[in-house]
Simulated scan of single mutants.
Amino acid sequence: MKLYIYDHCPFCVKARMIFGLKNIPVELIVMMNDDEQTPVRLIGQKMAPILMKADGSCMPESLDIVHYIDESDRSPLLTGAVNPAIGDWLRRVNGYINKLLIPRVAEAPFAEFATPQARQYFINKKQATYGDFAELKQHAPGLIKNISDDLRKLDDLIVKPNAVNGELSLDDIHLFPLLRSLSLVAGVEYPSRVADYRDNMAKQTQVNLLSSVAA
């Protein structure tokens, strides 16, 4: 199987997680960010991730891929109950976090930005959505304080470092990608349980953190 992704993309991380958790081999193919032709050829529109199955058919949508792979061997891993408090926490944080993350993503050495044209394509698209990156960066200190405060609230919700609710569930699929993205931001303060959970999930899912290129 092949999984077409962007390395920075949290939705792509969701799809990558289930392969790592189940130790199922998959070929990762990083598309250039300005490559519209490949996803359109595969599924008719520009989006990621895209799973190409063994029979050559293609499946978009991260959660559809997660469910398909999790149930493919009839031994699903994501059997735990979800905690509404995790969903509430994610909704609150997702209301502002991209204003902190996106300008940093645009400057980071991701493979999908290997050409100047691919990087500029991303910048143009995201500035149209979120506003001028230079202006967003001026608000970064306040946003870093906000997320550090919210991470302290998350710390109280983490039951175990290998599963946020004690047993692997969709909450893990939604939570870890955000924490992985946050590892791109220098200066964020992580309480111990959040840090342990993030680091452990990176190992379990075989998805690298971004701390080495944090800015």
Rank of each mutant, 00 (worst) to 15 (best):
Y96V: 04
I97T: 09
I97N: 11
N98S: 09
N98C: 01
K99C: 08
K99W: 08
L100S: 02
L101C: 04
L101F: 10
I102H: 01
I102E: 12
P103Y: 07
V105G: 03
A106N: 07
F110P: 01
A111T: 12
A111C: 03
A111S: 13
A111M: 09
E112W: 04
T115L: 03
T115N: 08
P116G: 01
P116W: 04
A118W: 03
R119K: 13
Q120M: 12
Y121S: 15
F122C: 07
F122N: 05
F122R: 11
F122H: 14
F122Q: 10
I123A: 10
I123K: 10
I123P: 09
N124W: 12
N124M: 13
N124P: 05
K125S: 14
K125A: 15
K125G: 12
K126V: 10
K126N: 13
A128F: 09
T129G: 00
Y130W: 14
Y130D: 12
Y130P: 04
G131D: 07
D132H: 14
F133D: 04
F133H: 11
A134E: 14
L136R: 04
Q138T: 02
H139G: 00
H139R: 13
A140R: 03
P141W: 03
P141T: 01
P141E: 03
G142F: 01
G142C: 00
G142A: 06
L143R: 09
L143G: 06
N146H: 11
I147W: 03
S148V: 02
S148I: 02
S148L: 04
S148M: 05
D149R: 15
D150R: 10
D150H: 14
D150C: 11
L151T: 08
R152D: 13
K153R: 15
K153N: 15
D155V: 05
D156M: 13
D156H: 13
D156R: 15
D156K: 15
L157N: 06
I158G: 01
K160A: 15
P161E: 12
P161A: 05
N162C: 13
N162H: 15
N162W: 12
A163F: 05
V164S: 08
V164P: 05
N165F: 04
G166S: 09
G166V: 02
E167W: 00
E167C: 11
L168D: 10
L170W: 03
L170M: 14
L170V: 10
L170C: 02
D171I: 08
D171P: 12
D172L: 09
H174W: 14
L175K: 05
L175D: 06
F176G: 05
F176S: 09
P177F: 07
P177A: 08
P177R: 08
L178G: 00
L178Y: 09
R180V: 00
R180M: 05
R180I: 01
R180P: 02
S181F: 04
